[in-house]
Design a protein around this nucleic acid. Structure first.
Length: 864
RNA sequence: GCCCGGGUGGUGAAACUGGUAGACACAGGGGACUUAAAAUCCCCUGGCCGCAAGGCCGUAUGGGUUCGAGUCCCUUCCCGGGCACCA
């Protein structure tokens, strides 16, 4: 056996062994319990980043652990290969997105393989391949026929200079990232998925997901946003025609306190009033400028302007003015709200700003009036006042009575409102899945015939930033109508990449099927038993996947299902582990054009103050002063990614894997630092050295040796804890446990069964984390041929037993020492020992003892 | 702004269901080995007071519940994620 640990050789040999034995190939096996372990597939951005390494290492630890526990584990890998970065790279390098993407996939696949992940590569898929996206299109057509996919207008960011639609991340401070032009909102026709049809089910089913973090379920719940209230109408006249302004409110009890209504800039009333009011038209134009992001909209100053139009209060008959307000969103509800300034903080501020009346109608904790400044109590529910016949009613009674009166007049009803909006999937971009619709002047929007799918995306185009190249390519869009055969134009928008990632997990079960989207194998493997990915996907990706799973179920793609079958419930992921993000510091400077240029932390030298805060930073290469951009997720845009490749090359995959597991529990954010990697490498070197020393020793040696016995007790105690930690997915302490076991082994005698057993436990415990070195030592030390075939270690109860237990002794809740007590001591014996102990004599008056609290096996607290 | 998390030594973290705070490491200091360095090994390392024994303080902040709080409840501050076209 080599004296020196040489990770490259060890890892190459282990990987060759796995390749030769097809160790990670998985087929359906009814004799074993199936376990589908899936990590979110990567976007092929060029090279792996630390977030990937972390994600896939976590998945691999789970996979290898469950394999050793005898399950039939499926762990596939693929590529989320459509998306914006490929177009950006294409513009920068004049290379087609397809070539860039395929090159990246080839390189990143090598990287993944070098990390030794137990992946079944035979199932590899890439969403940009026609074999894959054909089924996006196929399902889209079915959804379109069913009405789950439909067309309406949606609002996008428009760059007036490049004449192109911008993604939110391409809008920087309200301007286009390339042109610097002020971005405008523009309404365009788009396709939507009717996810709101499933809102109720998506919400209710969250309760049936015990394997999901509460935090994620809560985020989804809030996102879906069920609210019960009343939909009601304010009648008005427009150009002599009777109309109704419909609003939704959760506070119908405050209806008698409504003093005005506010509508979005795009609302019919606003547009009508603007025709004769240039000032209002200008204000509406102002509202239309700027980005569409909600985060941005919520930060803007609340502004409004009267329309001059009045509506009639449905109960009091009073005339209320209608205002245009920039905080009312057209996309949410009816694009109009009733304003009750006395009991709503935003309305209160708005009324104060524009001198609108404030009418209190609810008795709150502070009284019957609402003097400024605003108090949260004003918004609380209470008994109605100043509300005529509704006076004296509480919240629920008032809502019931008011809803009944409105309904009698046909001016309102109880209503459940959802915050969730339908999913707009059209993207005016090239590098995505074409939407299989043909626009025919005679037949309208006609889906492509099934036999003509997939609608292939040409792979040779290079976008230039001025709109979708497909829209400039007659060979792509000139076609004939699938219905009437006449000349027609193909849709040139492509699908949101979230469509691709909403069902890939089902396709892994049967990636080779050219006849069907999914088959019986999907029914076997689905649902995913353990899904692992970044917390940043907690809402959108996971919600869309849950929606798609239900659409596929309702399309009968999984066959007829027993109602108790997990797939019948529509949930694709039984257990979810949301790993924390990998964060890194970022640095930037202004370049000659006044744009921010981000410098990779590897090229930066920083100075820190006594508290470790960064005081200044400069680029090592040229000494340029840099601005510290704070700590944040590793991203291409901030150029703060740490390349794992250097780490792998210097220390090997096992060290990289061990460090990333050891550094932090999976769900924590991980602030990247290069320090600490050395320590992981040192540990593996020590492990190797221990193995080399142990190599060739016999099993002779004293079993009864007290040191050996103590070591065995320690090892099994640590193992018990490690197994518990594994079950909680707290892998960092499993790595610690391995270190503790090695420490114990180094203190214990090197020969004999305890040493041999201890090392075998250590190797098996480590094998999911550092599979290469574990594989090598396992073979080399004669434990077996393949550690993956070995049984998972369990602690021996006999080794865990102890003759004496150390009890913590507290006096009045303060820890004062400990008592060594025979294991057999019962509660009265423990109490007596404590009362008689010299600790009590020293810190309390034994005569004044009021009570003694005994926690078995742990602690005695004497209260005096 | 709204929704969801988090905050423990110089650093990453640990601490079972409310029961000895800081396991295991990193960094730092001291020492051994070496001509020297690297590597390796040993010792020390939360703060304050003390020659020592020991004492007091300490889990972002301020309060509360409890025999006992890092852990439960409330307040404030700071940091991270999401906000529907980044993936």
């Amino acid at each position: 056996m080599q004296d020196r640990y040489s990770p490259q050789a060890v890892e190459r040999d282990a990987q060759n062994f796995w390749d030769a034995h097809g160790s990670f190939r998985t087929v359906e096996d009814p004799a074993k319990r199936k376990f589908y372990c899936l990590s979110m597939f990567p976007y092929p951005s060029g090279k792996l980043h630390m977030g990937h390494v972390r994600n896939y290492t976590i998945g691999d630890v789970l996979t290898r652990h469950y394999r050793m526990r005898g399950m039939n584990v499926l762990q596939p890998m693929g590529w989320d290969a459509f998306g914006l970065p490929a177009e950006n790279a294409a513009m920068a390098n004049r290379v087609p997105p397809a070539k860039w993407t395929y090159d990246n996939i080839a390189y990143m696949k090598k990287q993944l393989q070098s990390l030794g992940f137990a992946l079944d590569w035979q199932r590899e898929l890439a969403t940009c391949r026609p074999e894959y996206y054909k089924w996006n299109q196929w399902l889209f057509v079915r959804m379109f026929r069913k009405g789950i996919a439909y067309k309406k207008t949606g609002i996008v960011n428009w760059d007036p200079v490049d004449q192109t639609v911008l993604a939110n991340e391409q809008v920087i401070e309200g301007r286009g990232w390339r042109t610097g032009a002020l971005v405008e909102k523009r309404e365009i026709p788009m396709y939507f998925f009717r996810i709101t049809d499933y809102a109720e089910e998506l919400l209710a089913a969250l309760d049936g997901l015990p394997g999901w973090p509460e935090q994620v379920k809560l985020m989804q719940k809030n996102w879906i946003g069920r609210s019960e209230g009343v939909r009601l109408a304010f009648p008005y006249e427009l150009a002599g025609e009777a109309r109704e302004l419909w609003v939704f409110t959760t506070r119908a009890d405050t209806l008698m306190g409504a003093t005005f209504c506010a509508v979005a800039a795009e609302h019919t009333i606003a547009l009508h009033a603007a025709k004769t009011n240039p000032e209002l038209a200008a204000f509406i134009e102002e509202c239309k400028r700027g980005a569409v992001m909600e985060a941005e909209l919520s930060q803007i100053e609340k502004k409004g302007m009267p329309t001059g139009i009045f509506v009639t209060h449905p109960l009091s008959g009073a005339k209320l003015p209608v205002w245009v307000a920039n905080y009312v969103l057209m996309g949410y509800g009816e694009g109009a709200v009733m304003a009750v300034p006395a009991h709503d903080e935003r309305d209160y501020a708005f009324a104060g700003q524009y001198g609108l009346p404030i009418a209190p109608v609810v008795r709150h904790a502070l009284g019957d009036t609402v003097p400024g400044p605003w108090k949260p109590e004003y918004a609380e529910q209470g008994t109605l006042i100043n509300s005529g016949k509704y006076d004296g009613l509480d919240f629920q009674a008032a809502v019931d009575a008011i809803a009944a009166d409105l309904q009698a007049q046909g001016l309102g009803e109880k209503h459940v409102q959802w915050r969730l909006r339908d999913w707009g999937i059209s993207r005016q971009r090239y590098w995505g899945c074409p939407i299989p619709i043909v626009h025919c002047p005679k037949c309208g929007d006609v889906p492509e015939k099934e036999e003509n799918l997939p609608v292939r995306l040409p792979e040779h185009l290079v976008p230039d930033g001025t709109g979708n190249p497909l829209a400039k390519m007659p060979a792509f869009y000139e076609t004939s109508c699938p219905a009437c055969g006449g000349p027609a134009k193909r849709e040139t928008d492509t699908m949101d990449t979230f469509v691709d990632s909403s069902w890939y997990f089902a396709r892994y079960a049967c990636p080779d099927n050219t006849e069907a989207m999914v088959d019986a194998r999907a029914r076997h493997w689905m649902p995913v038993d353990q899904y692992i990915g970044g917390i940043e996907h907690a809402i959108l990706h996971l919600l869309y996947s849950r929606f798609f799973q239900r659409v596929m179920r309702d399309e009968g793609l999984f066959g007829t299902l027993d109602p108790e079958h997990a797939l019948a419930k529509g949930e694709p992921f039984t257990n979810l582990l949301t790993q924390g993000m990998v964060l890194a510091e970022s640095y930037h400077r202004e370049n000659a054009q006044g744009r921010r240029e981000w410098v990779n932390p590897a090229e930066v030298e920083v100075t820190r103050d006594a508290k470790g805060r960064i005081t200044s930073a400069r680029r090592i290469a040229d000494g340029a002063e840099l601005t510290y951009g704070g700590i944040g997720t590793m991203s291409k845009s901030k150029n703060n990614g740490v390349d794992p490749q250097a780490l792998i090359e210097k220390y090997g995959a096992d060290t990289a894997r061990f460090f990333i597991i050891f550094a932090s529990p999976p769900t924590n954010t991980l602030e990247w630092s290069d320090e600490g990697v050395e320590g992981s490498f040192r540990f593996l070197k020590r492990l190797w050295a221990h193995g080399a020393k142990f190599h060739g020793r016999g099993d002779s040696g004293a079993t009864d040796d007290a040191n050996a016995k103590a070591a065995r007790h320690e090892i099994h105690t640590v193992l018990r804890q490690a197994n518990y930690d594994l079950s909680k997915h707290q892998f960092n302490t499993v790595a610690s446990a391995a270190m503790k076991i090695l420490n114990a082994l180094e203190r214990a005698p090197l020969e004999g069964p305890v040493a041999r057993e201890g090392l075998s436990i250590l190797l098996r415990l480590l094998s999911p984390i550092t599979p290469h070195i574990a594989h090598h030592l396992w073979c080399e030390l004669g434990y077996g041929e393949d550690i993956m075939q070995a049984a998972w270690p369990e602690p021996d109860p006999a080794a865990l037993e102890q003759d004496e237990i150390d009890y913590v002794v507290q006096i009045n809740g303060k820890t004062r020492g400990s008592l060594r007590v025979p294991r057999s001591a019962d509660r009265p014996a423990l109490e007596a020992l404590a009362r008689a102990s010299e600790l009590v004599a020293r810190y309390a008056d034994p005569a004044a003892i009021k009570k003694v609290i005994v926690v078995p096996g742990r602690l005695i607290n004497v209260v005096a």
